[in-house]
Each structure stands twice: as structure tokens, then as C-alpha cells.
Simulated scan of single mutants.
Amino acid sequence: MERQQILDLYQWAPGICFRHPVKGETATIHVETVRPAGGGLQDVRACVDCALAMEERRKAAAERGGVAYKPGMLGGPDPADQP
């Protein structure tokens, strides 16, 4: 699948990337919501570069595990975790 096809599987919104906060507000996807020790909820968001890197890692993990890789699942079930 091509880069843009993978990116099109996600809903993008302005936000701060968890790995690149110095970039400031940029297009991001929601990856996860966590509960920090200090309380409350914090959304974890990823920029284009991070989303594509995470998809590459998911694809490699799926291949190692002998399961089918399906892009577009960041923040959802990981195919490498499927039986």
C-alpha cells in the first residue's frame, strides 16, 4: 500500500505529536488516551512521520508473527496480537 493510501485511512486533526512536540501544532492522528499519574486524561497523538513509522513496525511485527498486516489500525487492535 502506498504512503498516501495509508495516511488516508486515518482522521487527521491539528495536535502535538508525542515524539516531536517541538514541531508545535501539526496534522496528527489520535493513537491512545492515557491516564497520567497526576490525574486526568491525556491524548497521545502522532504526526505523519511517526504514524508511518509505527505502521512500518506493525507490518514487520505482523510478518514476524505470520499474520496478515492491515494498515490503519493505530490506536486499535494490532494484527500481531491476533491469534
Rank of each mutant, 00 (worst) to 15 (best):
G65W: 04
A68Y: 03
R3D: 14
G24Y: 03
L41G: 10
L52F: 07
P14C: 06
R35N: 10
Y69L: 00
P77N: 13
V22D: 15
D78Q: 08
L7C: 12
H20R: 09
T33V: 14
A51W: 02
A51I: 03
G40V: 08
G15N: 05
I29C: 05
A13Q: 15
P79W: 01
L74C: 13
Y10V: 02
M54C: 08
V34W: 09
K59C: 08
W12L: 06
C50E: 06
K70M: 04
R57W: 07
V44Q: 10
D81K: 13
V48M: 00
R64G: 11
A60Y: 00
C47N: 02
R19P: 04
M73P: 03
A68W: 05
L9D: 03
V67G: 07
K23I: 01
A61Q: 05
V34G: 10
I29N: 02
L52C: 10
P21K: 11
Q5P: 03
K70N: 01
K23C: 03
E25L: 14
M73E: 04
G66K: 08
G66T: 09
R58P: 05
T33H: 09
K23H: 14
C47F: 00
E56A: 15
E56V: 09
D78E: 12
V48C: 09
P71Y: 04
E2V: 13
F18H: 10
P83R: 01
A68E: 15
Q82I: 06
R45D: 09
P21E: 12
T26H: 01
G24H: 05
A51P: 02
A68I: 05
A37C: 11
P14K: 04
H30G: 05
I16C: 04
L7N: 06
E32L: 13
T28Q: 03
C50H: 03
P79G: 00
G15P: 08
G24K: 01
K59G: 05
V22Y: 09
K70I: 13
Q42W: 00
A53N: 11
G24A: 10
V31Q: 12
D43N: 15
D43V: 06
L9Y: 02
P79S: 07
E2Y: 13
I6Q: 05
F18W: 13
V31S: 08
V48Y: 02
D78S: 14
P83L: 11
C47V: 03
R57H: 09
C47L: 05
G39C: 09
R19F: 08
E25C: 08
Q42N: 04
E56K: 14
